[in-house]
Design a binder for these strands. Sequence first.
DNA 1: AATTTTTGTTCCGTATTATAGAACAAGCAC
DNA 2: GTGCTTGTTCTATAATACGGAACAAAAATT
Lengths: 267, 267
Amino acid sequence: MTQMIRARIQSVARAAALLDAMASGEWVALRDLARRVGVAKTTAFNLVGALVDVGMAEHDATRGLYRLGLLHLVHGRAVERRMDMVELIRPFLVRLCAETRETVNLALPSTTDAIIVESMESNQTLRVSAYTGTRADYHATACGRALIAWRSAAFRQAIFDLGPLRLKTARTTTDLAALNALLDRCRSQGWASEFEENETGSACVAAPIFDAEGLPIASVNLAGPASRFRPQAMRELGALLVQWMAEISATLQRAAQTPKLRPAAGG
Amino acid sequence: MTQMIRARIQSVARAAALLDAMASGEWVALRDLARRVGVAKTTAFNLVGALVDVGMAEHDATRGLYRLGLLHLVHGRAVERRMDMVELIRPFLVRLCAETRETVNLALPSTTDAIIVESMESNQTLRVSAYTGTRADYHATACGRALIAWRSAAFRQAIFDLGPLRLKTARTTTDLAALNALLDRCRSQGWASEFEENETGSACVAAPIFDAEGLPIASVNLAGPASRFRPQAMRELGALLVQWMAEISATLQRAAQTPKLRPAAGG
DNA sequence: AATTTTTGTTCCGTATTATAGAACAAGCAC
DNA sequence: GTGCTTGTTCTATAATACGGAACAAAAATT
């Protein structure tokens, strides 16, 4: 059973959990849906049926399988279209990727985790591949940590209260006190990191982008194979990121002041 | 109040309606959400709050506004990644777009309407712009009509029963008998069309792609300004589409027989 | 081929859950 | 300053979603 999502309305929480269970994009059987979400098959049947009704799921009646519906394309595109901030940041990412020759990801904060909204792969043969549209745990990833390390203790706690910290690899920090100490260290050194805590064999270094109030609104990480991410290399990449993020933060705050002219639709 | 979506579970139907009300991607106030969905503001507050909890909506607490959440990126990308059929069809669309110099759209059927999953703009200065991830009414668009004209009367009726046919322009066909007659004519001539029924100033010609059982599984349309889409021009484009779609249908059915090798993840 | 097990689907009573009213606070317009 | 609109909290009620039981159909097993 997947970590149940909390929400004010049970049906919505469960519907979201069902979508999560179909997030691979592949066909899923009803019994698997029911098991993963942790509800009776009848309930899963009714809920996923409702998702089909609204277009958020598809049903192969002959095989009795379900998968994500095309409506998500509509909403996904709508979100993409409004992300002007990413447009501003992208040029920096391109240069950063070229300079470091590691995979670069841009993450934005969401309710329960961070979400990779732009990613560029290293051109080295041994590299970390990452897709845009991937979820990143706040506690187990460098980009997630960079987004919460600069926030208040109450803010952090609200996230931790969602459920027990998931153990993603044998090295994942799941102890709350240890994690908080780790986050405090991130803030004092200016960048966050993670070594085989999210995925065995890979490591990450990340730093936040700040808004005018000094709150992190996004984070950029460099991901690579554990073999290349020795302590000294990570320190260097971390310091490099901090410089770049300061530059990006300044650019964004400058752009926020200038009156934004809306691009003509259909251009 | 937006056309209410029907679903087995009320909360899911309403949650979907709320997402629909935010589909523009812009910030929306709670009172607008409540009005468009047709529920008490308290109910809208709870539902949209639940959507925020699961990451499907964002909340700007200072201004009290809501918009679509980043989670849709995740699901949207998941859907995109699995659309191997579109990969097969795309090359044809490119050539079709170059040959006709009109905007080309590929639509797939969803529960309540068709959804544009791929689109290519004409290179003419006067053209119809279309974004991937747009919804297309079954009754008012050529691509929608092409998807239901070849289906049984019962199938059509199930769609019409969702609610009254929406009047999109002054010319939209909303009479059921008239629409059914129109769809029958589409089937006998092999292609569907629409003239200023979906959007004033533009017109469309479409034809379906068939699976091995002879059921339409997708449709391709050509969209252009009403000024260029005179009756004679539409007949020519329609005939052209029918030829192309036969070729695409044959290609797809050939591909369905050959064992598909799964592409390695992360490539 | 016959039997057992699993799985998808329908039906329905019950109790949990979503719903909207009332009330309050905060913001904006006038 | 006053009146109106809007976002949010709380609570009672009734509608709604839930899951058990039962059935049919399909796999899996023998």
